[in-house]
Design a protein around this nucleic acid. Structure first.
Ligand SMILES: [Mn+2]
Ligand SMILES: [Mn+2]
Ligand SMILES: [Zn+2]
Ligand SMILES: [Zn+2]
Lengths: 140, 140
DNA sequence: TGATTTTTGCAATAATGTCGCATTTGTGAT
DNA sequence: ATCACAAATGCGACATTATTGCAAAAATCA
């Protein structure tokens, strides 16, 4: 995925957005990071160049437009990511380290659901989170 | 599970707690409800008999002691439940209706994870949430 | 009952997210 | 390049959820 300013601006306009500098920066962050990001992390990376409210509005707008997914909720933080690894009904699983808080996408991890969910229920999406220890925290 | 006041008090003391009236009431609510509950729901059920801060403290203390689990996060609400349907490494899946917000425990639903989670990672717990429509909301 | 320790209520504070509104910015037409 | 218009932003106020300090109250045990 190209991440230069022009490509980002084009992508934004194709998605129906004005290519404002804030939106270009936030989208670029996600593309360069290649991992889930929360509003707080984005603020830390961007510094005071973008207002808190604007970041929230950008994340909501991007999510509504399908440019981002809400990957999972980490404590009180909502964590977003590019949806390139997700299908319509299946957002891929994530891993979260209980020691350092590090998170990762489990792209090659398969989750099979067995059994009926119940009479009359319609399942549309599944969210799977694996908690444990990351390699860095494993050896204590 | 017996839910009379004496049994509840004994259970609390066995778990290392003083059997205060607030704790007896909260634990009794969970046992009688048989479903996940949030702090807000507890407050609504108990009325002004117990302070907000006390409910938060009771939920945290119960969870730390293993008397409760945090079942899942619903928007901004943390939802707790008795851990009687959960094993050490496997908290059973839950269902959440995207229309009415109704939630349910999927006790008979099995989730099989296939594939390695990755070199060096240690998986300790899995959290699975199925989103969709409940029977009441299914027919529109 | 009285001594001891824990828990509670209350109010203050924190953390996260939302909203209204004046100002600024991006865009497309001139 | 400039202009006009719609859309987005910054800012401050507000909302909601959760946490903390501390004096008062309650539970436990001798
Ligand atoms: Mn992911
Ligand atoms: Mn459950
Ligand atoms: Zn770690
Ligand atoms: Zn429903």
């Amino acid at each position: 995925m190209k991440a230069d300013r022009t490509s980002l601006s084009d992508l934004l306009r194709v998605s129906g957005f004005k290519a404002t500098s804030g939106r270009v920066e936030v989208l670029g962050l996600f593309i360069r990071a290649g991992r889930p990001l929360s509003q707080m992390q984005i603020m830390e990376m961007l510094g005071p160049r973008l207002d808190r409210a604007s970041v929230y509005r950008i994340l909501s707008a991007f999510t509504e437009a399908g440019l981002l997914h809400m990957a999972y909720v980490d404590g009180r933080h909502r964590v977003y990511e590019l949806p390139d690894k997700c299908g319509h009904s299946h957002c891929h699983p994530h891993f979260s380290c209980r020691s350092c808080g590090m998170t990762a996408c489990l792209e090659d991890f398969q989750v099979k659901c067995k059994g009926s969910i119940g009479k009359g229920f319609v399942a549309e999406r599944q969210k799977v989170l694996i908690e444990g220890l990351c390699p860095g925290c494993k050896g204590k």
